[in-house]
């Protein structure tokens, strides 16, 4: 088993379905941050068989984790401060998502006016369906 050291402050995202870690990396904007990020792919898991883990060493107020719920709401989010877990965050589907996913409807106004933000609203919390604010097209995943 690969060993990655403890972090002092930041997040440990556990129980990520195998293969989803890179999607999380980009959607959280980790590629744009100047901080230490560890991505572990296909780690053994009793619960999932295989899982991914992402560790981010950063100020805990810098990341907006809303998008995680959309990728997979069963991800475990451990908030770390002074090397200890201070909170296990529960993921809740956000009411709106801005510029997280793109509307793919060729008839939508966002297809011709590039400067418009792509805004989706939570249309069905049970089925986890988001729809485009402008054209009501269902999102096809992120």
């Amino acid at each position: 088993m690969l060993n990655v050291g403890k972090i002092e402050e930041g997040f440990v995202l556990d129980h990520i379905p195998a293969g989803k870690s890179m999607s999380i990396y980009y959607h959280l904007g980790l590629d744009k941050l100047d901080c230490t990020v560890a991505i572990i792919k296909n780690a053994k898991s009793d619960k999932l068989g295989k899982k991914d883990i992402v560790k981010v060493e950063c100020d805990i107020n810098t990341l907006d984790l809303d998008v995680l719920a959309v990728i997979c709401h069963t991800i475990t989010v451990n908030v770390i401060k002074d090397g200890e877990i201070i909170e296990k965050k529960e993921l809740v589907l956000p009411e709106t998502l801005t510029n997280v996913m793109k509307c793919k409807n060729p008839r939508c106004i966002t297809s011709i006016e590039q400067e418009l933000p792509h805004i989706f609203y939570l249309a069905d919390p049970v089925k986890e369906v988001y729809r485009c604010k402008y054209c009501d097209e269902k999102n096809s995943g992120i």
């Binding site: 008839r107 939508c108 418009l116 402008y134």
Partner: peptide, 22 residues
């Protein structure tokens, strides 16, 4: 284009009526 009148309404100083968007 669908949603164009909504974009207009968000920037408008006068009432906007959607007279059909796609």
């Amino acid at each position: 284009k669908e949603g164009a009148p909504m974009v207009a309404a968000s920037k408008s100083k006068i009432p906007v009526i959607n007279a059909g968007d796609g």
